[in-house]
């Protein structure tokens, strides 16, 4: 009996130590974002603040020097929102249509079509950077938010299609047959029967797309210019600026601000995020 009590204690200790390890960066960011800079420079990075101040948050939001502008993260935050909302909506809509076709209106070669779309999710995006930059230039979308929306939609379709296809694969065929006999066609079956029953997977898909598009760095860094830069790219420019005093407290506050939307979504709807994560590993 004593051995098993000891075992339980060790088990909880192990789980607790790892929980701390995962939390350290978040705690460090939070603690140091509300300290005056001098306190951090003295080597207090892991301690509670002696003086509590929100100056760093204010600076990060509206006055920090990023590139040539000293306007903080605010404008880039707006850029991210303008990019992420249409990109999420369009890629989710297309994924829903594709998943519906690939499961309920199957045709010869549909598995190949799906396979090609699925593999597209796993390519290293370095392979498309050069031609995509050319195409955006030709379309007049270079350095614009619309261009980024296009990029995120195109490279998001594979995964959104996968989400909906796996979900619709277990959709009761009888419902659709019955509707067909009643004279309903492709569009009306989707609108009236399939879509109203898709709420769970729509939530999963929207949350997943929101998180991954908000967090993207590679496409933002490659295709945005100063006026359309997403907040994650701006954060990187702020933190890795080589000139001037290193304002660690402002960096941490900026990182918190840039991470807050996806962190909040995770806290509120983590369950759905994890479902998306697992579906992305293909096993449905």
């Amino acid at each position: 009996m004593r051995a098993s009590v000891l075992g339980r204690v060790l088990l909880y200790a192990l789980l607790g130590v790892f929980a701390l390890w995962y939390l350290i960066p978040l705690v460090v960011m939070l603690l140091n974002s509300v300290k005056p800079l001098a306190e951090i420079e003295q080597g207090n990075m892991v301690f509670l603040p002696q003086t509590f101040t929100l100056d760093a948050w204010r600076a990060a939001w509206s006055s920090a020097q990023i590139g040539v502008e000293a306007a903080g993260l605010k404008p880039y935050f707006a850029n991210s929102l303008l990019m992420v909302v249409p990109a999420v909506l369009i890629s989710t809509l297309l994924g829903a249509i594709n998943g519906y076709v690939l499961t309920q209106w199957r045709f010869k070669g549909d598995t190949l079509v799906f396979g090609l779309m699925l593999f597209a999710c796993f390519i290293p995006f370095q392979i498309v950077l050069i031609p995509m930059a050319r195409m955006l230039g030709v379309l007049g979308l270079a350095g614009t938010t619309s261009g980024l929306v296009l990029v995120h939609v195109v490279y998001g379709i594979g995964l959104t299609t996968l989400f909906f296809r796996n979900f619709y694969a277990s959709f009761p065929r009888e419902l659709i047959r019955a509707a067909q006999i009643d004279g309903a066609g492709f569009g009306s079956i989707w609108l009236r029967i399939v879509l109203p029953n898709s709420v769970p997977i729509i939530v999963v898909c929207v949350i997943w797309q929101f998180t991954s598009i908000w967090n993207d760095f590679l496409f933002g860094a490659s295709f945005a210019d100063a006026d359309s830069q997403p907040v994650i790219v701006a954060l990187n420019n702020l933190v890795n600026a080589s000139q001037g005093v290193k304002e660690y407290n402002v960096y941490f506050a900026a990182a918190m601000l840039a991470g807050l939307p996806t962190l909040l979504v995770y806290i509120v709807a983590g369950r759905y995020f994890v479902r998306g994560l697992m579906a992305g590993s293909v096993k449905g």
Partner: peptide, 11 residues
């Protein structure tokens, strides 16, 4: 996994 590494990498 829910946060960009550009964010947590700062810490």
């Amino acid at each position: 996994m829910a946060l960009s590494f550009i964010v947590t990498g700062t810490a």
